[in-house]
Design a protein around this nucleic acid. Structure first.
Length: 677
RNA sequence: GCCGGAGUAGCGUAGUGGUAGCGCAACCCCUUGGUAAGGGGUAGGUCGUGAGUUCAAUUCUCACCUCCGGCACCA
């Protein structure tokens, strides 16, 4: 293959235009690799793949037409994904070399890494990972050349069936008829793949590591066979890999379950799995959040109610939960338990009740207690509703996924023409709250009709459209989550990420035409007719549990002053100032904080330890203020103020300190005193 | 629920077929100190639960429970 520029206009030639606008002529069938070599040896070495007219293109894949070409190197943003995709292939090769008979399925690049799903009768164990990793490094060292072939579908299907790769054959069957079936070879190993891939296996380098092992269902469906997934991470170089591993290590320190123990916030135990024991410190967070949200709701025109925990099964039948949601409900017999030793505890035909998994049907009952006029709408009915959901054991996760939860729930009963303004009203409220809490990075998804849906498709389509239009009007971007709606309504999901990057749904807005019809929630319209109200289910925090878990990780336990379980700790230097220290504490504890119906939360360290130790202890508890008092302070009516950042504000009059901390607590905004604060 | 891993004192950990140590925390004594660990001592464990193998099980086997990482499900 000649890479030297030749005369244009010849049908045997192609013109390649580079990003800087420079055009070069080559013999037809030139590859991006050839072009790179023609430009210079440095680029030839650095190039990973090409991009031909906007499509990713292997370095070794011929170009048959005039085209724009960009060469992608490790420095380009795409490089990481490419490295990870290639690493997935090398992982598959390594596994098949070490464990013959293992079937390959899919292996994509993901955030921070890659995975590959395998089908093998005997499960992998953790001990296999180092072996596989070593084999991967060996394959990289072999620097095997890559080759791309396009096969007819039938041949590809027959071939993969023939070698026992049934999952691959099934994948090919699902490729649309018009699309190419491309096969990539690395040495004598081959796989169905869309590509692109590097020219040799050596190009991915050695900055990868296998991280975890997991079961994963074929095509993400629990009805299918479970495959074995191996996860790995891969980077441009060792330094990036090290940085990543360090980042994960640091993030794990922010885990709310660890901080929850260290700061004595809450605990969980097997006898009440998935239900939180809030300790005094943690309950401060809970209570402060509830109070804060209650104020926001009042200002936003909500009313607050409280509804029963336990309701008859017939009620849930009517709402539709019995039919569509029963497997998530805790069912309770409505019968006095039999106390005879040999008798059954309840009879077989006991009538049933259920703990509420949601508040919505109960709110409709309140709505229905009066005849409502179109002029009454919207009615925004809030409840800090305690709900129980029988979640699968494997789903439980600290505060993030529990079985007993308190939602900052509300249902907006409104008219069709109010949907858009109510959507905007809610979204603005949500963003206001998230901003107050320090969350900027919110991902919104519109979850559409699931398989297990109630109501009619027409109603669903209408609801999905109205919700999407309403959100669009607020100007926020969102993505579609097909088939992920609740059984009764499509929903907007507002997601945040935890310390290690897992995304959790917090707030939600759901538009429901179904429940008002099932439960007869009507109002009298302008023309005197009865119309069904539209119901919007919504929560800003989602649940107090999950939100507090998220806050804990967000602040790594160093809560802003208004939330901090202990806002200040008095640290007497010696017993000589015991009385003064107690007086300081007493005075602070009596400072009322507006907006919270509470006072300052202050404690005192009377232990026999030295001051340094007391400071260290307070520091580890991430208490915002340490008030050191010795004989000097006692004499002058002062406190020596130290921040948890380590910054020493020096001695100040107690009144001055009160002014400062009160302002912080009431504005929910900490003063910044320079780096580290 | 499924796959892999783990469960030893409040927390973090060591260890062994002959019933267990260490650090921090707790408690007591000494020390009364000026911004991230003063010194000494004491107490605390049916080694997740239940079976089995064995003269003997925390250790080996099985079952179950819970937790951790994923998958599925979901706020």
């Amino acid at each position: 293959m000649s890479a030297s520029p030749s005369a244009p206009g010849n049908p045997a030639n192609v013109t390649i235009t580079l990003p800087d606008g420079k055009a070069m002529t080559f013999t037809r069938g030139v590859t991006p690799g050839d072009v790179a070599a023609a430009i210079g040896p440095g680029l030839a070495k650095a190039a990973l793949i090409g991009e031909v007219d906007g499509h990713e293109w292997d370095l070794f894949r011929p170009i048959e037409h005039d085209a724009k070409l960009r060469l992608i190197t490790k420095k380009d943003p795409e490089a990481l994904e490419l490295i990870r995709h290639d690493a997935a292939h090398v992982l598959a090769m390594a596994v098949q070399e070490l464990f013959p008979g293992t079937q390959v399925t899919i292996g994509p690049a993901i955030e921070d890494g890659f995975y590959y799903d395998f089908a093998r009768a005997e499960p992998f164990t953790l001990d296999d990972l180092p072996k596989i990793e070593a084999k991967m490094h060996e394959i990289v060292k072999r620097d095997l050349p890559t080759r791309r072939e396009v096969w007819p579908r039938d041949k590809a299907i027959a071939h993969f069936e023939g070698i026992g790769e049934h999952y691959k054959a099934e994948l090919i069957k699902s490729i649309p008829a018009g699309e190419e079936v491309s096969i990539y070879w690395h040495g004598d190993w081959h796989d169905l793949c869309r590509g692109p891939h590097f020219a040799t296996t050596g190009k991915i380098g050695d900055a990868f590591k296998l991280t975890k092992l997991a079961g994963a269902y074929w095509r993400g469906d629990a009805k299918n066979a479970q495959l074995q997934r191996i996860y790995g991470t891969a980077w441009r170089d060792e330094k990036e890999l090290k940085t990543y591993l360090h980042r994960i290590e640091e993030a794990e320190k922010r885990d709310h379950r660890k901080i929850g123990r260290d700061l004595d916030l809450f605990h969980l135990q097997p006898e009440a799995q998935g239900s939180v024991f809030w300790h005094a410190n943690g309950f401060v967070l809970y209570h402060q959040m509830e109070t804060y949200i209650r104020r926001q709701l009042t200002k936003a025109g909500y009313i607050e109610v409280k509804t029963p925990q336990l309701m008859d099964a017939k009620f849930w039948e009517q709402s539709g939960h019995w039919g569509k949601y029963r497997e998530n409900m805790f069912v309770v017999p409505d019968e006095i338990p039999n106390t005879a030793d040999d008798g059954p505890i309840v009879s077989a035909n006991a009538s049933l009740m259920a703990l509420k998994p949601m508040n919505c049907p109960a709110h409709v009952q309140i709505f229905n207690q009066q005849t409502r006029s179109y002029r009454d709408l919207p009615i925004r009915m809030a409840e800090f509703g305690c709900c129980h959901r029988n979640e699968p054991h494997g789903a439980l996760h600290g505060l993030m996924r529990v079985r007993q939860m308190t939602q900052d729930d509300a249902h907006i009963f409104c008219r069709e023409d109010q949907i858009q303004s109510e959507t905007a009203h809610f979204v603005n409220l949500l963003y206001h709250v998230y901003k107050d809490m320090g969350f900027e990075d919110v991902v919104i998804r519109l979850a559409t009709r699931p398989e297990n849906f109630g109501g009619t498709i027409e109603r669903w389509d209408a609801a999905e459209k109205a919700l999407g239009d309403g959100l669009r009007a607020t100007g926020h971007e969102f993505e579609i989550a097909a088939g992920e709606g609740a059984f009764y309504a499509p929903k907007l999901e507002f997601h945040l990420r935890d310390a290690i990057g897992r995304s959790w749904q917090m707030g939600t807005l759901q538009l429901d035409y179904v429940l008002p019809e099932r439960l007869g929630a009507t109002y009298v319209a302008e023309d005197g007719s009865r119309k069904y109200a539209v119901m919007m289910h919504r929560a800003v925090l989602g649940t107090l549990e999950r939100f507090i878990g998220m806050l804990t990780e967000h602040y790594a336990g160093a809560f802003p002053t208004w939330l901090a379980p202990i806002q200040a700790r008095v640290i007497p230097i010696s017993d000589k100032v015991k009385d003064y220290a107690n007086a300081v504490r007493a005075q602070l504890s009596n400072v009322d904080i507006a907006e919270t119906s509470g006072s300052l939360r202050v404690d005192i360290d009377h232990s026999a330890e030295r001051m340094q130790k007391k400071i260290r202890d307070a520091q580890l508890l991430k208490i915002p203020y340490m008030l050191v008092v010795g004989e000097r302070e006692a004499a002058e009516g002062k406190v020596a103020v130290r921040l948890r950042s380590g910054k020493d504000l020096g001695a100040m009059a107690l009144e001055q300190f009160i002014g400062r901390i009160k302002a912080e607590a009431e504005t929910r905004r900490d003063l910044n005193d320079g780096p580290g604060d």
